[in-house]
Design a protein around this nucleic acid. Structure first.
Lengths: 337, 337
DNA sequence: TTGTAGGCGTTATCAA
DNA sequence: TTGATAACGCCTACAA
């Protein structure tokens, strides 16, 4: 039987009211009383029941994050990095972190959000991998439910977000590759209408146009953000009638898959073919050759996004509701060093 | 203002009791009533307040998992895989999943567990990467708090766990490598006293002994479970006075780092030097050459571990409280194919 | 088969 | 500065 506020009050011969206020740091409690209460609470090992407190205060003191999965079994370094950022920042504000898992773009996923919103199980939600027309954004906006996102949407709904300038990043990447003499550049994109995909693709297209290169639709294909997907797509590209001389993966995992495909075909990556990714995951540093990429500091982005959400929850005025981070080009061997 | 059970009851001109029972599937409700209630609830978008329900039933209806991090920024595919397993299984039992992040083997970590236990924030806890003498196991056991683990400890405390036979797996690996003619086999291990490390090392040692090879302490070094750590350790090993002809990484990330190091030194992996890992993460399938490894089905293990915990919570009799899975050797190019 | 009522542990309101 | 008391929204023993 856990210790309740009643037990503490009885022991001190005080009312539960006073105990409650003493512990929550209200000013209208005598200093000596407060000290006695705090000491006794600590001694008895009392912690307020989360459920009761939530019920009464009508706040969950928790935020939620729903991991989008593609297959049941999947491994994406993005998530451990991102989640640890959200977790650390939440802990810093004494908020709990609720996690759920749901396949992207399904009814299940929407239901999961709905449950959290309607059940008031969390005070706010963190979104990642936003889509151009994102039903989650619509749901949360309509419900007036607090959220912050890593990534933008086309709907201009004014929610707080952090994002990197994907378009600029992709342009940097293409220019760099062109400068090294590779002119037939393919792009392996993401499924669905992920905003980051659309933006990176736009950057790719823009940079090609700027270089006065004719766009070639056969060079833009769809992957699934995984290594295996990148591998498959690259294999097909490289074995086609007019293969590309360079491949950009919409994320590093895709690019690493492409790199494996190229090597398997006996193509010297960095020389016969250039390959580059987007994300800056650690695996890319140690691939052979190391992967050229555009780095996004996922952990920091996660903390920042969470901070935007928390500010919204506590009603603080936020200096900046929209943060757009500059992309950072990391040049490594896979594009010719 | 969220919709409460009262709203639904009023709308149907029923008592809240009936609504509650209809939704929770009690048998003493007329079938037609149940249908009306369920339909109306769905239509109104009603979900019971988690807090109220928790308070009343004195259960959190939640389980917790604390991710151990090594650095603030880290990416380990293990976690996304494992967490999605826990998340799916928890959802299947209508349990919430609480997540926290804490650096392994620190006071912070212990405090995080303590908080969850004391505040009854969760009904049970999932543990991974158990250590030989694991303070978390001690804490939870002493408190009589339900938990289940992926991995064993030396303390024989009879808690439910799932594990793979690490020792047998390592023996398989060593035998396979020896059979391919590599005789000077190094082992890059993990920090701390992780049980899986100790067990895999034991298997390695046993297999060498069985082959009547003299153990060489200089061949057993410590990594940090990351790519970078494996890379550094391997570089040192391979550049030493008497370099190994084969390297086993205690996990795949370590092995992939070693693979990068070997390639960088111009050593043909699979020919001049054999490299193998342990885990079966997807990245290994597409490395050059692909990585020989011992596969552990992390997602399934996560679900199973969670199931053991849930069974314990609901007081079901569990057919098997301890599950030891057979290791599966995956032979690929990095050991000579 | 349905309804009434009490209470889970807190916090907030109001009075003392 | 402190205390009595009424919710918060739900579940469940008991009554009808």
């Amino acid at each position: 039987m856990p210790i309740t506020i009643r037990d503490v009050a009885r022991r001190l011969k005080l009312s539960i009211t006073t105990v409650s206020r003493a512990l929550d740091g209200y000013p209208d409690v005598a200093e000596t009383t407060r000290q006695r209460v705090q000491q006794m609470a600590a001694q008895m090992g009392y912690t307020a029941s989360r459920a009761a407190r939530q019920l009464r205060r009508r706040r969950a003191d928790a935020i939620g994050y729903i991991m989008s999965t593609s297959q049941p079994r999947f491994s994406d370094p993005f998530f451990s990095d991102f989640v640890s950022g959200v977790g650390d920042e939440a802990a810093a504000h004494r908020l709990e972190l609720l996690l759920a898992v749901a396949p992207a773009d399904t009814a299940d996923e929407m239901q999961a959000y709905q449950r959290w919103v309607q059940g008031r199980r969390v005070d706010g939600i963190i979104l990642t991998r936003t889509r151009v027309k994102d039903p989650r954004v619509r749901l949360l906006s309509t419900a007036g439910f607090p959220f912050a996102a890593f990534g933008r949407t086309r709907q201009r709904l004014g929610f707080p977000y952090v994002d990197i300038d994907n378009e600029a990043g992709a342009r940097l990447l293409v220019k760099h590759i062109l400068m090294h003499g590779f002119r037939r550049i393919a792009f392996i994109g993401a499924p669905l209408d992920y905003t980051f995909h659309v933006q990176r693709l736009a950057g790719y297209t823009a940079a090609l146009a700027q270089a006065r290169l004719r766009p070639d639709d056969s060079l833009v294909v769809t992957g699934d953000l995984t290594l295996a997907g990148g591998y498959r797509a690259a294999l097909e590209l490289l074995q086609s009638r007019r293969p590309p001389t360079a491949i950009i993966g919409v994320n590093d995992l895709t690019a690493l898959g492409a790199l494996a495909a190229a090597e398997e075909l006996g193509l010297k990556v960095g020389q016969a073919v250039a390959i580059a990714g987007f994300d800056g995951i650690v695996d890319g540093e140690h691939s052979r050759p190391p992967l050229t990429t555009v780095r996004q500091p996922v952990y920091d982005i996660a903390r920042l996004t969470t901070r935007l959400l928390v500010a919204q929850l506590s009603g603080d005025t936020v200096p900046q509701r929209h943060v757009l981070m500059p992309p950072e080009l990391i040049i490594r061997g896979s594009t010719g060093a």
